[in-house]
């Protein structure tokens, strides 16, 4: 798990440019699934055929980044955000482009640091002038944090744990999943960070019986954290609600009772702000009952995102067990009213 997570976290894959991560995931899964394909939104599908319930599990593989909008005469790169990046966190960061070009983020002279905005920042790739800069980086190129993974005891620090941690969990679950009648679609989605876009088209394509997202969630166990009963290391969470989805009560209950039965530690999650792929999946076509398993993660959207390996291992267990059980959709979702 540790090796896989390190590889995925350090890979380059901002929203809309997920191919490098996709290839890595393909290599991990090609010996374990029946079919792998991509679509024109950038999603990667890994399919285990079956005759039972049709289940889609989404883990987004994109990460936040910055997109170059202008190259100045002196070779500095102006940029805009791809997903939720904060100028204060960007300041002083080392950024990397798809072709490996690395730069550092500098700031215009500023009297009041509170007034820092993205417009005051630029990337310096060491180019003398525009000509030298555009030989390496063009307008429209996207950079992500350049950051190696480090171990801190049982916890891992790095960039893009949101959501390569989820990708790693889904990969492991697909590898460990041996016996099941269910038809499982592991979808490594694109463009989640810019509006749940990959999962929207993927769920429309698949129209599954059940939808899941595996993503990271915020925690409430750090100093002056948001009010939230989720801690790092106390197990994966079963999501109740976030800004994008109210998880189907039945799916939530099934996850809870499975965790109780198998003695898997878990936490219930109510996330006040932010969304995840299930937000798009559950509204696809005539509606798809959806649930979310989250991995608690500190310092989300910074280059120092921290996750706990036990939480991830338990997420794999919970997901694998859920996907392996026989699921009779008529029994699980009878018309409440009949």
């Amino acid at each position: 798990m540790k090796q896989l997570l390190k590889k995925l976290s350090e890979a380059y894959g901002p929203s809309g440019r997920e191919e490098q991560v996709g290839r890595m995931i393909r290599d991990e899964l090609k010996d374990y699934v029946d079919e792998i394909y991509t679509d024109n939104t950038g999603n990667l599908y890994a399919v285990k055929k079956g005759t039972g319930a049709k289940i889609m599990v989404a883990a987004h593989m994109d990460e936040i980044g910055v997109i170059v909008t202008f190259v100045e005469e002196k070779g500095f790169l102006r940029f805009s955000n791809v997903g939720g990046v904060n100028p204060h966190i960007l300041l002083g960061q080392r950024m990397v482009f798809a072709n490996g070009t690395i730069g550092t983020i500098g700031m215009e002279k500023l009297d009041d640091i509170k007034k820092l905005t993205l417009e005051k920042l630029y990337i310096d790739i060491g180019a003398k002038d525009r000509e030298e800069a555009v030989a390496k980086v063009k307008v429209g190129d996207i950079a992500t944090y350049n950051r190696d993974v480090v171990e801190a005891g049982n916890r891992i620090i790095g960039k893009a744990m949101d959501n390569r941690a989820g990708c790693a969990v889904l990969i492991k679950a697909m590898q460990e999943l041996t016996k099941t009648d269910n038809e499982i679609y592991a979808v490594f989605t694109a463009q989640e960070e810019v509006g749940l876009r990959g999962s929207r088209t993927a769920s429309y394509r698949l129209n599954p019986d059940l939808g899941f997202a595996v993503d990271v969630t915020l925690v409430g166990d750090t100093p002056e954290a948001p009010t939230m009963d989720v801690s790092l290391g106390k197990g994966p969470t079963v999501k109740v609600k976030d800004a994008s989805v109210i998880c189907h009560p039945k799916v939530k209950e099934m996850l809870e009772s499975l965790a109780e039965k198998e003695n898997i530690p878990y936490q219930l999650e109510v996330l006040i702000a932010g969304g995840t792929d299930a937000g798009a999946i559950h509204l696809s076509r005539e509606g798809i009952p959806s649930g979310v398993i989250s991995i608690p993660c500190r310092y989300v959207h910074t280059p120092g995102e921290m996750v706990d390996l036990d939480d991830m291992a338990n997420a794999v267990r919970l997901l694998t067990l859920f996907l392996s059980q026989p699921l009779n959709m008529q029994e699980i979702f009878p018309c409440y009213l009949s």
Binding site: C247, G287, P289, C335, Y336
Partner: peptide, 25 residues
Amino acid sequence: GYEHHVAKVIKAAFCQFCDEVRQDR
């Protein structure tokens, strides 16, 4: 997201005025 209770009350009243009923996912 948790409308099942009020749904039952509504159904009890509506059914006398309609031919069929279903609940989606």
